[in-house]
Design a protein around this nucleic acid. Structure first.
Length: 493
RNA sequence: GGCAUCGUGGCCGAGUGGCUAGGCGCAGCUCUGCAAAAGCUUGUACAGCGGUUCGAAUCCGCUCGAUGCCUCCA
């Protein structure tokens, strides 16, 4: 029997606007699609938060014993830009500026993306398809939508006819918009090209002669519209209806709305059972975005080379910081908040590391079973990691009390505690103990233990000048001595 | 302008009709040669104004403020 059969998960479904009990389409299996990045520049920390949120969700499902197929795409075909160079796609533009082949840009930033996510300890998705690898499928679905009467061709481009679609379907169901409101409220747009209506969106876009990324199609050389790849790739790998579709909140409209329209137009049914949206990471109270430059790069966090930061922070600390907020809430990044998280993270990890060495007794003052269920309950309630973490700190308190001999724990409970902490801290939250070279750690440990012994001798001889010198100089090196009931331990910053 | 979301104690951040979230910081205490670490104790917070209710931070209305989307964006 798998763990998931004992746990009932509630998910906030953006489509209904309510928390719903999650039920997998196929018992024991979950299909999850998450909109990935457009690889035309370095991933910033805001991007990372979204992928980290879904990584946590992926991890939890796996922990519960589900077989999960997690698909996260790479958008390498570029999208339209809205500034002066109208009609040019982002990747092509970047390529020309840097005198690179488009696929060279794609390669560079895909690598950066992967490297960064690896630092944050994200699990790779099951499939990571690219838009350029699915041009044929995209052309096929355009033909299908065309035949069903929801698309029209204009000057070598193909557009989705939103008004036509809305006659028989509900365009705007996800974002809570009404087509008539959108028509009356549409802002003035400069490049309105060949669309019948501003609400229509491109399925296929004609490539101008200078446009580098282009493919042949029944409508001439061009490139696919930016909503299409997700429809095509999610369907290809997960089926016409699948369990979960995720992405950043900023993709809700129009991107996800258009995905629903395309899928309903082509397959005649709603593609997704649970829509999930991760909220924005803000900087100075404003959304991080590539286009506005209001962002911070992961590399700047790791080196501390940013005027907002007083020091560098490890990837795990940043991950812990993000896990202390609910995925659907806006989270504001600041030096103070990271500093506070770092302290909490260290406290948590030190307690976790010490569980195995806890002295055991005949009884336990800590009800592990009910505590464990509280951990599951918090995750089952729409993946509430901040609540989970509050329960983890409850365990930390007990661990420290046991260490001081003020509470007892049985051996069985200690083992269960260690296992459960490992499940949630390592497997579900994806946190990592500070990575250090094992061989170096062993040597360092030997040296520090030696100094601890010298200090102990000095203290026994009441030579406090020497003992304090050892303690203070080690502290200057970032090694903190901790005098406890059963002798002195140390930790390295 | 339209559509949303949000406004919680010094800071971050959960919760959401009555019952302690948690982390960081601050203060006191215990421990200590002195510290640190650890533990214990302490916060009577929910933007403002009305309303519903036996009871609201939590529901409703209005006001103010912030953010997001409406145009590429995680």
């Amino acid at each position: 029997m798998q763990t998931y059969q004992n746990q009932s998960i509630q998910i906030y479904n953006s489509l209904s606007g309510k928390k719903e009990v999650f039920k997998a389409l196929n018992e024991g299996h979950i299909g999850m699609y998450v909109c990935g990045p457009t690889v035309y520049s370095n991933v910033h920390l805001g991007n990372c938060r979204t992928f980290m949120s879904f990584d946590m969700i992926f991890r939890y499902f796996k922990h519960l014993g589900y077989k999960v197929r997690y698909v996260r795409n790479i958008t390498d075909a570029g999208h339209m830009v809205d500034d002066a160079e109208d009609g040019e796609d982002k990747i092509a533009k970047k390529a020309r500026l840097e005198q690179l082949e488009p696929m060279e840009v794609v390669q560079r930033y895909t690598l950066d993306f992967h490297n960064t996510l690896e630092k944050f300890n994200l699990l790779p998705p099951s499939i990571e398809p690219t838009a350029t690898g699915h041009i044929i499928e995209q052309i096929e679905i355009i033909k299908d939508i065309f035949e069903k009467g929801y698309a029209y061709e204009a000057n070598g481009s193909v557009y989705f006819d939103v008004a036509k679609f809305n006659e028989t379907h509900d365009y705007g169901q996800l974002s809570g918009r009404k087509l008539e409101d959108m028509i009356t409220n549409t802002r003035e747009l400069t490049a309105q090209d060949d669309k019948k209506s501003p609400q229509d969106f491109a399925l296929w876009k004609k490539a101008e002669p200078q446009h580098i990324m282009r493919w042949p199609s029944p409508w001439g050389d061009g490139f696919p519209g930016w909503h299409l790849e997700c429809t095509v790739m999610s369907t290809k790998y997960l089926g016409e209806t699948f369990d979960i579709h995720g992405g950043g909140m900023d993709l809700k409209f129009p991107h996800h709305e258009c995905e629903i329209a395309q899928a309903e137009a082509s397959y005649g049914k709603s593609p997704v059972r649970y829509w999930m949206h991760a909220n924005m990471l803000t900087l100075n109270g404003k959304k991080m975005a590539k286009s506005t430059g209001n962002n911070i790069l992961p590399g700047e966090i790791f080196t501390g080379e940013n005027e907002l930061l007083s020091k560098p922070f490890s990837a795990s600390v940043v991950r812990f910081f993000m896990m202390q907020a609910h995925y659907a809430s806006i989270l504001d990044l600041s030096d103070d908040a990271l500093l506070a998280s770092e302290k909490g993270f260290t406290k948590l990890m030190e307690a976790f590391a010490s569980v195995g060495a806890l002295n055991t007794g005949d009884k336990s003052d800590f009800d592990i079973k009910s505590w464990e269920q509280k951990c599951y309950d918090s995750m089952n309630d729409d993946f509430n990691t901040p609540i989970l973490i509050s329960h983890l700190f409850e365990a930390v308190r007990h661990i420290n009390l046991i260490k001081e001999g003020k509470e007892d724990i049985s051996q069985l409970d200690r083992d269960n505690l260690q296992l459960t902490l490992n499940n949630f801290i390592i497997d579900v939250l994806g946190l990592e103990p500070n990575a250090t070279n094992a061989a170096d750690t062993e040597k360092l440990s030997g040296v520090v233990e030696m100094l601890i012994q010298f200090r102990k001798d000095a203290r026994e001889n009441k030579d406090f000048a020497t003992s304090d010198k050892i303690r203070d100089q080690l502290a200057d090196l970032g090694i903190q001595l901790k005098d406890g009931k059963d002798g002195t331990t140390f930790s390295v910053n």
